[in-house]
């Protein structure tokens, strides 16, 4: 392998500039069958980068014709390249593996999935809001008829119609009829028992800790510790329903301002939701 160091003569102005940049000259080192090429580059943001490439030099015994071809001079766009691969045109790719396929089923499964999606087509993806069909609302066949119906109903909605429209419209769960009823029920039932709210609990508090804390005061009807859904950690407050108001009042008196788990608890009567 031949390497040549060319000394490029340039004008003194350029030389001064290159000296001020102080870019070390790239070097090639041969060491027992390993070629180490060190290059220095100045990036656009005037950062200097050192690039070290290591090549393993192998010797192979090849037919004469191949050996002869190896000595050919480079031509065309590669005419100025040095011997050895030019990093601009040749690089080593990421490791890829040959994926062996043991059975055909695997392949089919993937295709089936795709086909299934295709077969579904517009069916479940698109739903008309006015008639519930497999098309966009704007493309509904009954669009015109429905609109006229709606106009006439606006003036005089019958009970049945409004019920229907309600069922079609999206209602947040909190506003749904069934939900309010339920919450009313629960509230009413729990209102029978005196409730207190403990806040400023530490994250690590568990239901057992809380029970241990308030049990001595009297009979507990219900204990609720607010926990984060994802992490399961305490959100910092809890509601406790006692059987007797006397016990609850005692808890408030004793635990409000009590130091617990490096935090100071704040305990008060639980205010009913509005």
């Amino acid at each position: 392998m031949a390497s040549s160091n060319k000394v490029i003569k340039s004008s003194w102005a350029e030389e001064v500039e290159s000296e001020s940049a102080l870019t070390p000259v790239s070097s090639e080192v041969f060491e027992n069958n390993v070629k180490i090429v060190t290059e220095f580059k100045v990036l656009d943001n005037s950062k200097k980068v050192k690039i070290v490439r290591t090549y393993k030099i192998e010797k192979r015994i090849v037919p004469k014709s191949i050996a002869l071809r190896k000595t050919w001079n480079k031509f065309g766009d590669s005419a100025n390249d040095k011997s050895g691969p030019n990093p601009a045109t040749t690089f080593i790719g990421e490791d890829v593996y040959m994926q062996f396929i043991s059975s055909k089923e695997e392949d089919k499964k993937i295709d089936d999935g795709l086909d299934k999606l295709k077969a579904l087509g517009n069916k479940n993806v698109v739903k008309c809001r006015s008639c519930g069909g497999d098309h966009w609302t704007s493309k509904c066949m009954f669009k015109d008829t429905f609109l006229t119906n709606a106009n006439s109903n606006e003036t005089k909605p019958t009970a049945a119609e409004t019920k229907k429209s309600e069922s079609l419209k999206y209602v947040p769960p909190s506003l749904r009829q069934g939900n309010t009823k339920r919450s009313d029920n629960t509230n009413r039932r729990d209102d029978n028992y005196p409730a207190i709210r403990i806040s400023n609990l530490s994250e690590s508090t568990t239901e057992e800790d809380l029970a241990e804390l308030v049990k001595p005061f009297g009979f507990i009807h219900k204990l609720f510790l607010a926990k984060d859904k994802q992490t399961g950690l305490c959100k910092g407050f809890a509601y406790i329903h006692f059987k007797y108001k006397r016990d609850a009042a005692q808890v408030i008196a004793r635990l409000d301002g009590h130091g617990y788990d490096h935090l100071i608890l704040s305990v008060d009567w639980s205010r009913p939701q509005e």
């Binding site: 192979r60 065309g76 766009d77 590669s78 390249d81 691969p85």
Partner: peptide, 10 residues
């Protein structure tokens, strides 16, 4: 063998 470009036919 090593991916070195011998040349291009321009």
């Amino acid at each position: 063998l090593n991916g070195e470009r011998l040349g291009s036919f321009n």
